[in-house]
């Protein structure tokens, strides 16, 4: 063990995440992984390589005390406030932690999710090949649950480093880009056009499984509950409940679903959507599959 960290205070739904548990859908398990994958990667890049797992915290932040040892750390994601031993530090930032240090992360003006990563690995078992916490299934991370005050995390020399990737200047505004979804043809054409014209609002009913949207213009008001065969779901799918409520399915989504899905948020914009706070107005723009692939190639080009 090269360091021991005490979680002295934490925000709800703070979890250990790594790049995710992909390949397990046949067992009914979605991949999980960071809600803002670009920020997670940026934290690793800032360290010149990080242990595979890091901590994802939510809006009220996180307090860590170094009980033993030391490490380098990086902070990224959204815009939080932070201090080290009561001295304000920048956001994002990298630095060193030594025994006795107190790292405080407090609320900030932007985003729902922030990341704390280390140049070390977190000493937790691999569950189905990953350390990512899946809160829906209660597996991975710290005993399959969110971190709580009093938890102690051991840091170890990692077997391999995640090089991460520096943040590309992402569009911080503008519509969220989507591909038409699996059941788009089940919605009438006027719903398609209104879906792209009208604004939706992010609600506070959001977690790692999904983000509920408010539909003030009633785009989906008349949507009748279609009876569909349950079929595979991917992160970013926008499903419409029987009462017309749109939900964007996120990293801990269920593996299959029976609600109609009008569109799928492209990977490049799902991180941005995850960071939108309740009350944020959002519009959607449809793009072609070719365009979505071009954007994802740009994102992975410097990996």
């Amino acid at each position: 063990m090269t360091a021991k960290l005490l979680v002295s205070n934490t925000s709800p739904l703070t979890t250990v995440q790594d790049l995710g548990r992909s390949g397990m859908l046949r067992h009914g398990i979605s991949a999980s992984g960071p809600m803002d994958s670009q920020a997670f990667a940026a934290a690793a890049a800032a360290l010149g390589g990080a242990g595979p797992a890091g901590i994802e915290f939510t809006t009220s932040g996180l307090d860590i005390e170094v009980v033993a040892g030391g490490c380098r750390f990086a902070l990224a994601g959204g815009q939080f406030t932070a201090s080290l031993n009561d001295v304000a530090i920048a956001w994002p930032d990298v630095g060193d932690l030594q025994q006795g240090d107190r790292l405080h992360i407090g609320p900030g003006p932007v985003g729902n999710y922030g990341y704390l990563r280390f140049d070390k690995g977190i000493h937790l078992p691999l569950v189905m090949g990953s350390q990512a916490t899946n809160l829906r299934a209660g597996i991975g991370g710290f005993a399959g649950r969110a971190l709580a005050a009093g938890d102690i995390l051991g840091l170890i020399e990692p077997e391999q480093l995640d090089p991460g990737q520096q943040a590309v200047a992402a569009a911080s505004a503008g519509p969220i880009r989507v591909l038409w979804g699996l059941h788009a043809d089940a919605f009438p054409p006027e719903v398609h056009s209104r879906f792209l014209q009208k604004e939706f609002v992010i609600t506070s009913r959001m977690d790692r499984m999904g983000v509920r949207l408010d539909d003030p213009e009633g785009v989906f008001r008349a949507s009748s509950g279609l009876s569909l065969v349950s079929d595979a779901v991917v992160a970013g799918d926008i499903q419409i409940l029987g009462d017309g409520t749109p939900i964007v399915l996120m990293r801990d989504h269920q593996p299959t679903g029976g609600y109609p899905r009008i569109a799928t948020v492209i990977g490049s914009d799902l991180d941005r959507l995850a960071q939108m706070r309740p009350g944020t107005h959002v519009r959607f723009e449809s793009v072609s599959l070719v365009h979505a692939h071009r954007l994802s190639t740009l994102r992975s080009a410097s990996r």
Binding site: L179, L182, A232, D237, T264, I266, L289, H293, S296
Partner: peptide
């Protein structure tokens, strides 16, 4: 059927 940008369904 495309399902997002990195998956498809054969239905």
């Amino acid at each position: 059927l495309p399902l997002g940008e990195s998956a498809l369904l054969v239905r």
